[in-house]
Write a protein that binds this DNA or RNA. Sequence first.
DNA 1: CGACGCGCTGTAAACGCTTGCACGATTGTC
DNA 2: GACAATCGTGCAAGCGTTTACAGCGCGTCG
Lengths: 344, 344
Amino acid sequence: MTDINTRPASRATIEDVAAAAGVSVATVSRALRGLPNVAAATRSRIEDTASRLDYRPDPAASRLAAGRSRTIAVAVPVVNTWYSAQVVAGVEAVCSEAGYDMILMSVGIDASHRRRLDAKAALDRRVDGLVLVDLAITDDEIDSLIGSKLAVASIGPRLGRMSTFGIDNVRVGEVATRHLLDLGHTRIGLIGEDTVPVFEFEVPGQRLTGHTRALEQAGIEPDPELIAFGEFAIDGGYEAFDRLMAMDDPPTAVFALADEMAFGALQRARELGIDVPDDVSVIGVDDHPVAAVVGLTTIHQDVSEQGAHAARAVLSALDGTDTELVHETSPVRLIERATTGPRR
Amino acid sequence: MTDINTRPASRATIEDVAAAAGVSVATVSRALRGLPNVAAATRSRIEDTASRLDYRPDPAASRLAAGRSRTIAVAVPVVNTWYSAQVVAGVEAVCSEAGYDMILMSVGIDASHRRRLDAKAALDRRVDGLVLVDLAITDDEIDSLIGSKLAVASIGPRLGRMSTFGIDNVRVGEVATRHLLDLGHTRIGLIGEDTVPVFEFEVPGQRLTGHTRALEQAGIEPDPELIAFGEFAIDGGYEAFDRLMAMDDPPTAVFALADEMAFGALQRARELGIDVPDDVSVIGVDDHPVAAVVGLTTIHQDVSEQGAHAARAVLSALDGTDTELVHETSPVRLIERATTGPRR
DNA sequence: CGACGCGCTGTAAACGCTTGCACGATTGTC
DNA sequence: GACAATCGTGCAAGCGTTTACAGCGCGTCG
């Protein structure tokens, strides 16, 4: 109980531990990191000494010497959305369990590459791996990412050169639209994000593709008039719905590319005195927790699971455990609730 | 245009820059960090050289040498809530502008200190500062945090020894309850979080205090029966509301300590065929974006702004710019929407 | 019984930066 | 015109790890 020096002037270093345990720093380093070639007795003595001195390796020193930071970054377009929060939660859980730090960076939704390249620059040397979330990224950027030997995985769009995790967004579009079709609707509006359709892998584009395909299979000519764009959030859905309903011949059903947009639609519907689903059916995508509250019919996906899987992929690539690319598609399912009904 | 070595085998180091610019590494270091005592001409020559070589200082080396990581952590109880996401967004924006990395860690909501102390341990040496979000933390933990010379700020509870940012939660409770009182309600239920009331500064406790105070001021004896606890999320609100409504003499109005709990209440109300606000009024706290969608009356607060302010406080403490403690209270305001109405 | 291999440990050179200190060259002061 | 102050720069010692390499003792094998 010689707790005199309980609060050392400065943190214990590996040298302090080595001295106290009567071994060299090399042995301490090996022992504490679980490397082989350390006698069991020596190892446990060192472990005891280390914990007695409350020693914790300095991450910066270890990073500098070993060249790995035990940190991964997750890059999201914008952080304060439900979707991002879910992904981040999944990644964080995995990281924290593996003893990795997770740095979060938002790269913005604008197509200007500037911000994204900056992000890449910022990443350089400071993280071992990277999880990209819903990022439209060019081949050049991918190359430079991979070239910088980061372990990288992507959530959302399916990128050829890295592991990707997501859902089949074309199918999402089909399922949603087919559901509406099955209810007898023929004039179906779509509320989506106003992106430049440069990147064919982008999520909204794929859902739109599925939508169009389902219409065509049903023998219905897709009508560009019925597509309304807006910001990928409640307000965007609100405004897009408003525009749709202002048409001479408004749709009897609306497919919102995300629940949050559907919420905006629902809000506007209530304000306009439009009954859902009697006057117009509404379906979303995500199964946001609030969807159950407002009774929104939607397509369920487990976003935080996707985040966790992506994180695990990055981590195991870092271990060298599992180095081959995977493209994982999580299941989705239609959840029928109260906002969709038969065409009046 | 001697772009031969466009892709150097390995990253340029400060030595490469020094050699190319014909100066010493010390001068490069000073020039690039904007320190004084570097001739203007020298500085710009170095800057040119650096950018030509695409030099970026290795953060680990710089951290090791300088003892600062230009990284701050934000510790939240749980990451995938609206509230956390807002805070994190605010912090991230400030960090990214200041060139700081932000690491996100969830420390769990359980009162067991184990996890929190671990968090502290994990932080040690790896970040310069820390933003605590809604964390019930003991004095000892605060001391050890401050003792480890991190710059720290807290969002939510008002902690004496560090800068805090938040709202007046007692007042929130008063305003919400008074609103209900003004509408003629006398039996007012409360839906809150089931925490051990150990830490008097905890947010739910304060809102409860305000609630009780408002009741007493109105000459109403607070009835413990009317307080229902649940998980601080939709489900918790759902269940608590259910219990409240199952009473022989259910309340005519309900104060949910958070919008998400109010959403759960609304959901259950709809299922039970209870009309809101005709049968029962519901008020929440936060002004979650979905509140507008469902017409929820609530108390507005700007969470991401609080995050930004906390981050700025941490950063300026790090600069040494602004070292004194502040306790900032953001304004809140009642937003009347459609879920509250006069007592039937 | 000497050579060899193996298991364990130590030595010391990186890793890439920051910074205290010293030093020469200017400039200013009397 | 000598002396001090100032400015700009370089030297070199860290910062706390990791890891290649060397060395030592011991059992094994020919």
